[in-house]
């Protein structure tokens, strides 16, 4: 027993040393909050995805001005909403997510009672402009527009697009599909099929297996496969991104540039990340969080950290964020209404 205790003691000491370098100290400014620990639940279960990275980056910069510790917990969408629903109103539990938060409700993959109106919307903090579509390196088209042209010129061919259902991936696919339908008619759009699957790895594998011709992906996740020197059988190329503007350093045309329009409007989809708080969250906390975020957004180091993975800053203050997101939701509600049922376009 004694030995066991000694071992434990040594262990604790060693751990203490290891942990010391990680302690954060409050800076003693006016925007400090009362809670000593904030739990930031995110809508993804992955610690390798863009939600985690954006949450991690912003929380690292927020710890100081807020004078608190922030712990990012990757619990997934359903559980994150659950936790937020149970959370106290002192700001000790917050949620961080992207547009899927309301798109999921519209598509039915997230329960209706989690709609935006039932939460206090915090500030929008960043954008992942990298949501993209890709094809194999030797595909006979280089852009999304060309793929539609190619379908038109080759009436015996089909194009299968690998997507994830119920979120950003599906909405951007819907945009492409509706545009093809508007411009080329159902004769062409009926030959677009969907291959619905899960993670990015699954979508990549679908492309390599030949189960899909085009896949939804991202600059961060797929850029490595598009580089010079990658073997031909796994080589990919970007066909376009859905963001409003090109991403610096990448020569990938946007959907809008390619002339992809739905209902006469350019199709633009920026994947934006924002905070969600309990409905009855203390006003004091909410405003302090907003102030702190505003301050961080000015910090060039924050922008530099985001840029490592091709993300960009994008601050919408909390009081404008709700109107902003509701408007965005309305735009895409229309698309979802007209979108094809996946039952019809999967095989």
């Amino acid at each position: 027993m004694k030995k066991l205790l000694t071992i434990l003691l040594v262990a604790i000491l060693a751990l203490g040393l290891a942990a010391c370098s990680n302690e954060t100290s409050g800076s003693g400014e006016g925007s400090e909050v009362d809670v000593s620990r904030v739990r930031l639940v995110i809508g993804s279960t992955s610690t390798g995805g863009d939600t985690y990275q954006n949450a991690d980056t912003i929380s690292r910069y927020l710890e100081d001005p807020l004078g608190t510790n922030i712990k990012v917990d990757a619990v997934g969408a359903v559980r994150a909403f659950q936790e937020l629903g149970k959370a106290k109103n002192d700001g000790s539990t917050l949620m961080f997510f992207h547009d899927m938060a309301y798109l999921g409700v519209e598509y039915g993959s997230i329960q209706e009672n989690n709609k935006l109106e039932n939460w206090t919307i915090g500030p929008v903090v960043s954008i992942n402009p990298g949501n993209a579509f890709l094809a194999k390196g030797d595909a006979p088209y280089d852009t999304m527009t060309e793929s539609a042209e190619w379908l038109k010129d080759n009436p015996d061919e089909t194009i299968t697009v690998a997507i994830e259902s119920g979120g950003v991936s599906e909405i951007t696919f819907d945009g492409y599909y509706l545009w093809v339908k508007e411009k080329y008619g159902t004769e062409v759009s009926d030959r677009i099929k969907a291959y619905v699957t899960g993670s990015q790895e699954d979508k990549n594998q679908a492309l390599w297996d030949g189960n899909a011709d085009i896949i939804n992906g991202s600059i961060g996740g797929n850029n490595e496969y598009t580089k010079e020197g990658v073997e031909d059988d796994i080589k990919m190329k970007f066909l376009g991104i859905t963001a409003g503007e090109r991403v610096e350093g990448y020569d990938i045309p946007t959907f809008a540039e390619q002339g992809i329009k739905v209902d006469g409007k350019e199709f633009v989809f920026d994947k934006e990340f924002f905070f969600l708080m309990p409905k009855d969250v203390e006003e004091d906390f909410a405003s302090k969080l907003d102030e702190a975020v505003a301050e961080v957004e000015e910090n060039p180091d924050y922008a530099k950290d985001l840029a490592k993975n091709a993300y960009i800053t994008n601050y919408v203050p909390a009081d404008e964020a709700i109107a902003y997101l509701l408007e965005k939701r309305e735009t895409f509600q229309n698309i979802i209404k007209n979108a094809p049922s996946l039952d019809k376009i999967t095989n």
Binding site: S46, E224, K227
Partner: peptide, 28 residues
């Protein structure tokens, strides 16, 4: 050698590399 995690643990490793701004992929 491909940037595809072989199991859930290596999937977390990808996260670590990404936080450092290193992309794993076929040219890693």
């Amino acid at each position: 050698s491909l940037g595809i995690p072989g199991d859930s643990t290596t999937a977390v490793l990808v996260g670590a590399l990404l936080l450092q701004g290193i992309q794993v992929g076929p040219l890693f």
